[in-house]
């Protein structure tokens, strides 16, 4: 790792509660440009809470701590502005919006980002060519583009549609919340290839997952284990193999 690279995300002593329950309890995490981090952990340990808090979901109340994204204090920044700054959340359960076409939705998202960066709207032809090429890359039929957002999509199609949005928005930090759940082996390979195609010196990724399989494709730089709202262990990609073999108990059992 190059220690001189700047931090994309810097989380310090983060405590978060939702519906009166404390979920995150003093979590620390730093991610530098170009890195891929995996976050693993038992159910209810706070993985999705972390993802949604970074994205700005209003159900999650920050009781303590800071989140910095590219040097900006994220807590005071509206959800849409976080996206326009280059943050992307791939949903565990992508939302269906019947009546709003995938194409219109993506075009609005791209133009919002361009407007934020003082750029003119994307020319229609350029947008459609790029959209079709990215959809091809993910094996999504063109018919998905004119359908309502995620409307009637299978679980796997929804996840691929999330990656399509990621490819189109070209974020600086992507948080993929259990993107591998509900994917068959072929789809997982396509999704992993899609994610890998965006990796470069400037982009970073957080992959939240329960399984080693996706990590075999993505080869993360770090693997973190989260339990009871804190990161309790950090290692390299071999930690994921160890977890696959031994489960979490050897780490979470109170001594």
């Amino acid at each position: 790792m190059n220690n001189k690279k700047e931090n994309v995300l810097e989380i310090n002593d983060l405590s978060v509660s939702t519906s009166g329950s404390k979920i995150l309890k003093g979590l620390n995490l730093s991610i530098r440009k170009g890195e891929t981090h995996a976050i693993m952990g038992p159910n209810g340990s706070g993985k999705s809470t972390l993802a949604k808090t970074i994205a700005g979901h209003t159900d999650y109340e920050i009781n303590n701590g800071t989140i910095k994204f590219l040097g900006n204090d994220l807590v005071s920044i509206p959800i849409e502005e976080r996206s326009n700054l280059g943050l992307f959340l791939g949903f565990q359960y992508p939302i269906e919006i019947p009546g709003l076409s995938n194409t219109a939705f993506l075009k609005a998202a791209i133009n919002a980002q361009r407007k934020y960066n003082d750029l003119k709207d994307i020319p229609a032809n350029e947008f459609l060519l790029e959209l079709k090429s990215k959809a091809d890359q993910l094996g999504l039929d063109q018919s998905f583009l004119s359908r309502g957002v995620n409307e009637g999509f299978s679980g796997g199609e929804k996840k691929r549609n999330e990656i399509l949005q990621m490819l189109m928005l070209n974020p600086k930090l992507s948080i993929l919340d259990e993107t591998d759940s509900g994917l068959d082996i072929d789809s997982m390979k396509i999704v992993a290839d899609g994610v890998n195609s965006t990796r470069n010196e400037e982009t970073s990724t957080i992959v939240i997952t329960h399984y080693e399989r996706l990590l075999n494709y993505l080869e993360p730089d770090y693997v973190h284990v989260i339990n009871d709202g804190r990161i309790i262990k950090t290692g390299d990609s071999t930690l994921a193999n160890e977890l696959e073999e031994k489960g979490y108990e050897w780490l979470t059992k109170k001594k």
Binding site: P78, I79, E80, F88, A112
Partner: peptide
């Protein structure tokens, strides 16, 4: 739904308008 649209950079006014129109489109 509103959160989902906002996480894609779409502001509250436009996101609401999309959701109202998608309700009507049904």
């Amino acid at each position: 739904k509103l959160f989902y649209l906002k996480t894609r950079g779409i502001d509250e006014v436009e996101a609401k308008s999309f959701l109202i129109n998608s309700f009507i489109e049904e």
